[in-house]
């Protein structure tokens, strides 16, 4: 059983992904290569620089408070793998 990097295992769990052993080994190798490549970002001269979240520098547009969408329930429920009594069904959740 290959060593599992705990940080990457944690990331996979957070992302609800569970690769099998073969996949996992390869994934870990690839991820480490990517993260190594990405290390060079640490050397960047960004001491006083603000993060750039959007290339656009515009404010959020605002929408009038109108109801523009009607009941499309049948259409939408038809897309789902499992529905019943108008609900989307999932295995029972204990809360």
């Amino acid at each position: 059983m290959p060593q599992q990097d705990p940080a990457l295992r944690h990331a996979a769990a957070l992302a609800r992904l569970q690769p099998d052993d073969a996949e996992r080994a390869r994934l870990e190798r690839d991820l480490k290569a990517i993260l190594r490549m990405v290390e060079r970002l640490q050397a960047a001269p960004v001491a006083e620089v603000q993060p750039l979240y959007h290339p656009l520098e515009l404010p959020a547009p605002l929408r009038a408070d109108q109801v523009t969408e009607g009941d499309q329930r049948a259409l939408h429920l038809a897309l789902a793998p499992s529905t019943g009594a108008g609900y989307y069904l999932v295995p029972r959740v204990l809360d």
Binding site: Y87, L89, V90, R92, D95
Partner: peptide, 15 residues
């Protein structure tokens, strides 16, 4: 909202 009763062994989601 989720409902956990009345749908057998499923929970139902109402969005």
């Amino acid at each position: 909202k989720s409902v956990h009763e009345g749908l057998g062994d499923c929970s139902g989601v109402d969005l």
